[in-house]
Design a protein around this nucleic acid. Structure first.
Lengths: 205, 205
DNA sequence: CGCATGACTAAGCGCTTGCTTAGCATCTTG
DNA sequence: CAAGATGCTAAGCAAGCGCTTAGTCATGCG
């Protein structure tokens, strides 16, 4: 029912019951959307009565916020790890796109919520998450800027190029399913090559 | 209130009132999402009482279906026009990406509904729209295949490359706003270049 | 003038929503 | 072994939902 990639994001939520509720919420939010999901759906899927949800979370929106914050933080970690892994912009970008893409394919369930249910977040949770999104985008921009400065990349507009890179990865969570023919890792490698070529990097086929 | 790109899609809905309701629905579905929009929202925005909606449309879902079908058909038209415009795969692809991207930027309101509210469609409307989506994807695949056959493109995997091309364009509707610094046309031209380079085409900077 | 017709509204029906309340077993602790 | 805390359920409340009903009013037509 709950996929391992989702489960791995919350290795030990405060209690077992809180964790079950949260994983049920992820599943339902991703499948039907936040507004189409009822608190009864979530509680029932977690094997409890509707009221049990409110012992562990103050509201339905708090569940969404928890999912969104954790998902965004995991994505930012991954992106910053790619930047820190080497000083070569080409390798930074390859690593970033590979792991970013793999993450959005394997974790497409959480990815859908993270990227498509932003507007349903309470205002202050939205603000916190928007900050994380900016830091992700800035990391990509920084790598591109360094690549251009070292004449490794060649792009008509750095901002637009950065948008294209993140956009390509994010959208994977919209269309990828377990039934897709390529594995998340294969897709990541392919996308890594495509992006490097898009940025005008010397190709190493 | 209603942007011109949206209005242009329904030049003459059956009556003035039906058109006002439809445009109000587009606005609200795009801003808040389908499930978060109430029939009262739509009717009020169109300057009518809640019941008036049901004189012109049989249900809230029928409004969504009308928007989704029309939006998908317009996108398919655009894609097929690009393929028919020339026999050179490079020019076909450039034209396709430019108009596809421009369309998703200028029409991001309808684009969001078309691409993000698919799951809310009644089953048979979904089936009709899924068919149109397949034809869009196939057109992109065809152009890539011809480009590869004529040694103009060079990609590791044609299916994945086609996915990347459509995905890049579709996602524009998620992030683009009127406040974005680049015009839809500028973005289209930039994306056209980026995609051609991604496909390994000879660049004409 | 009398009477259909069509666009619309006021009122509200039945149902579902997010969330609350009251109570009940089962643990933990002095 | 009493007393409180803990984790849960049964029941249900107020509000809001999609949609229906009954009726009003302007217009067109014999």
């Amino acid at each position: 029912m709950t996929d391992p990639a989702t489960a791995a994001l919350w290795p030990g939520e405060r209690t077992e019951a809180a964790r079950r509720l949260l994983l049920a919420a992820v599943d339902s939010f991703a499948r039907r959307g936040y507004h189409a999901t009822t608190t009864r759906d979530i509680a029932t899927a977690a094997g409890m009565s509707p009221a049990a949800l409110y012992i562990h979370y103050p509201s339905k929106a708090a569940l969404l916020a928890e999912i969104s914050r954790t998902g965004h933080q995991a994505t930012l970690d991954l992106v910053e790890r790619a930047e820190a892994s080497t000083t070569d912009p080409v390798e930074q970008m390859r690593t970033l796109v590979e792991s970013f893409t793999t993450w959005h394919a394997r974790g497409h369930t959480v990815g859908r919520i993270v990227n498509l249910e932003l507007h349903a977040l309470p205002e202050e949770d939205f603000a916190a998450v928007a900050e994380l999104r900016i830091r992700i985008e800035e990391t990509v921009q920084r790598i591109i800027a360094r690549g251009v400065a070292e004449s490794l990349f060649q792009v008509p507009d750095q901002r637009i190029a950065a948008r294209a890179v993140t956009s390509l990865g994010i959208d994977v969570s919209r269309w990828y399913t377990e039934r897709s023919s390529e594995s998340p890792e294969d897709l990541g490698r392919h996308y890594g090559q495509l992006v490097l070529r898009m940025l005008g990097a010397p190709v190493t086929d």
